[in-house]
Amino acid sequence: MGFKIIRKERFSDTTFLMEIYAPEIAKKRKAGQFLILRLHEKGERIPLTIADANVKKGTITIVVQEIGKTTKELGTFEEGDKILDIVGPLGNPTHIEKWGTVVCVGGGLGIAPLYPITETLKNAGNYVISILGARTKSLLFWEDRFKKISHKVIIATDDGSYGIKGVVTLPLENILKSKKIDYIYCVGPVIMMKFVTITAKKYNVPIIVSLNPIMVDGTGMCGCCRVTIGDETKFACVDGPEFDGYKVNFDELIKRLNYYKSEEKLALERFEKKHKCRCEGKK
């Protein structure tokens, strides 16, 4: 029972990578797909994008940022520990064609799910420019990996500690001004995807964004993840998670992501209190 953590790598105080033994998911996953995991009997089900897989080793890779109770608790899991439930791969794979020149924009943790998309785009014969954004240098990861799967990599940090100082739309707009771009793929915080979409639209370049609403089952059963796409309601889990950026109602998504804020805060405080006591007890 359960899914064993084979490798854990800390990227920063709040971000880490986990390689998990799940051979059937590893075999099937394609770029853009996600999984749902539940840590233990009392756990909630949360969606996480599959960042990579190794079919030979039978492993999948997730990159996690500790934001809420469940992600913080997952951060306490170590190599050899088991996650009780994982189901996947879920959602539709990314729609990829040989477009010509594409820009892949990843922000924050979105860099991880962007990785397989970028890799597949390059393998499909596209000229790939990657823009990776982070708040500060220490939160940036996988620059080296992106260099291997992109023709060009541009880094932007909010505080200017590395690469260009500023948000990802700055370098994006520079590229769009000077070069014909055929497609943009973007994964990151909703607010970033919103502004990247606005920039793309300004230059009439089509854009695909990957949405991350709250989910319960992740298989089309609960409708918690519904998003407004054009004038239609779609379920991100079975109709997405990727959509035409022009059509996404980002403001509604931001509000929906905030709905359980007070409960999330309560759960996190309760966890931190308990966890702190445990740590102190050990001393």
Partner: peptide, 14 residues
Amino acid sequence: MKAYLFPKYDTPIK
């Protein structure tokens, strides 16, 4: 998800 036992169980319900 047993949200009636939140926060003992992790899934919230309003």
